[in-house]
Design a protein around this nucleic acid. Sequence first.
DNA 1: GCCGTTTTCGGCCCGACTGTTTTCAGTCG
Length: 580
Amino acid sequence: MTAPIVDKATVAQVLRDISLLLQLQGENGFRSRAYDMGADRILGLTQDLGAIVSEGRLESLPGIGPALAEKITELVTTGRMTYFEDLRAKFPPGLLELMKLPDIGPRKVAALWKELGIGSVEELEAACREGRVRELKGFGAKSEAKILEGIALFRRARGERKLLGDVLPLAEALLERVRASPGVVRASLGGSVRRRAETVSDVDIIASAPDAGPVLDALATSPGVATVLGKGDSKCSVRMEAGDLQVDLRVLPDEDFATALHHFTGSKAHHIRLRNLGHERGMKISEWGVHRDDGTKLPVKDEAALYALLDMQFVPPELREDNGEVEAARAGTLPTDLVTMEDVQGAVHAHTTWSDGRNSLEEMARAAKAMGLKYLTITEHSEAAIYAGGLKVDALKRQWEEIDRVNEAVPGMRLLKGIEVDILESGALDYDDQVLEQLEVVIASIHVRHSMDEEQMTRRVLTALDNPHLHILGHPTGRLLQSREPYPLRMEDVLEHAAKRGVAVEINGKPARLDIKAEYVRKATQLGVKLVVSCDAHRQEDLGNLSYAVATARRGWARKQDVLNTLPAERFLAALRAGR
DNA sequence: GCCGTTTTCGGCCCGACTGTTTTCAGTCG
C-alpha cells in the first residue's frame, strides 16, 4: 500500500474548488455538482484513501465515475492535478474567495469580473465605494450597500463554523421562545444542529401555527438579536450578537410540519436521495408536502410517515448523511436500538480538584446523581502530566480514602476509582503495573509529544494497548476541532489492535474533541471494538458533555450494546476486565 | 460528470426571498 501524498480533506477541497470554478465558467450546474458530491463521498470515507486508489476501487464508490477517479488518482499519487491547475490558472486567485461573501454567487462573481475586472474582495470593496457596481445589470445601490455589509461580516467571522457545544444551548433557548409564542402547535430545531454535526454554521427552527406572523415576530424581537436579515410571510432570518450566529425560522400550517421539518433537517445529500425515491414512485417531495403526479396531496403526520411512504425504516436525524443509511433503511437493516442518553447509566472520565478539575469529589458525585446517573469514574491525570496537576502514587492512594467517604455520604451514586494515565513516548504507561492493577478503571491517553511521525505514533499506541491493566483508550486521535489536527496515526491498525486486546475506545464528549469521531465509531463497531461515552469533565457542568458523546456514537451507528457504560456499575467493571 | 429492473441519452430537488425588475435572475438552504 502506498501512503497517499495528500489526505482526504485536501482531495475534497480540490474537488470543491473545481466545482466553484466550473460554476464561474458557466458550465452545466450538474457537472459542478458531480464534483461536490465526489468531495462529500471522499470526506465520508472510513477506509484508507491510499488503499482504495492503489487497488483501483475509486469507481466502485457511488457518485465517482471514470473522470473523477482518474483525477483523484492523479492527485493522490502525484500530489498534483493537471486539470485543476489549468482550470485555476484561468482566473485570478481572489475570485474563489469572492464567492464566500453572502449573496454573492458564481453568476455575480462572473459578471463582476468580466464587466469590471474585479478579482478580489479588496477590489470589490473599492468598486462598491466608488459606485461602479450599481452600473452593472442586475445590481443597484442596495446591492452595493449589502455587499459592503457582507464584506465587513466576512472579515469578522472569517466564515468559521462554530462548535455544536457552543451553539446548541442558545438554539434550545430560542426554540423554547418559539414554542411559547401564540398559536404554536409543534416546533423543533432542524439543520445540522438537529443532526448533531460536530460544527454548525447556523441554527434552523421549524414551527407550525395557524398564523405565522406572531411567531416570526417572537424571533425578530428576541433578546440578543443584532439584525433582522429578512422577514417574509413564512420565514424570518436574524443574526445574533453572540458569535455572528444566524438563525432561520420557518413557520407553516401544522399539516406541513413533518415535511418541512424533514426538509430543513437535511442533509441535502440525504434529502436528494429521498426525493429521487419519491420520484420513482410517482411522488413529488418538497417542504410543502408530498404530492402525487396528478397533484393530490398525501397526508404526512410525522417524519416516520414520510419514510413509510417510501417503504423505508425511519432514519434518525443523526444518520441522515447519505452514508449508506438510505440503502440500509430500504433493506430494513438500519439499527433500531441506537444508544440514547437514557441508556447511559454512568459517566466516564471526570477530573476533580485533586488534579486540574474545579469541583470536589463530593460536588461531582452529587451533580452526577442529579443527572440521574448511577456511577462516575474518577480519572485524574497521572504523574507525568505535571501541567495538569498529575497525581503522584501516594496522593492517588489518599484519594481512594476520600472516594470511600463520599460513596458513603452520597447514597445512590458510586464513584469508581480510576486514572487517566499518560501514555509515555515509549508507549509505556505512567504508573507501574502494581499501581494500575489496584484501580477499577484505567484510561490511557496521550497528552505530550504529539509531533511524532505516523509510524512512531502508531507503535506508541499499539504498545500501550498491550498493557494488561489498560481498560480504555482515551481521546485516541488527540484532535481539537478548529485548532489542532489529529496526530498522525493509523487508526485502522489501532482499532484492530484494540479489538484484539479487548481494550475499549473512548468517545470523548468534550465539544472541541468529539474523539473518536463518528466515522471511526462506525469502523470500531464493525470491528467489534467496545466503546464508552465520556464527559471528560473538569467541572460539574461538563457532565452534560455526555450528550455530545452519545450524539457522536449515534452518528457512528453505535447501538446500546456497543457502549459499555450503558451497563450497571458492577457489570460495567466486569466488562472492562473481561476484555483483558 | 454520473447514472440506468421502463433510459447508454437525457435527465439530474425544489421553493422562498430579495433586489432590480415591469416578469425575472440570482442566491440560499
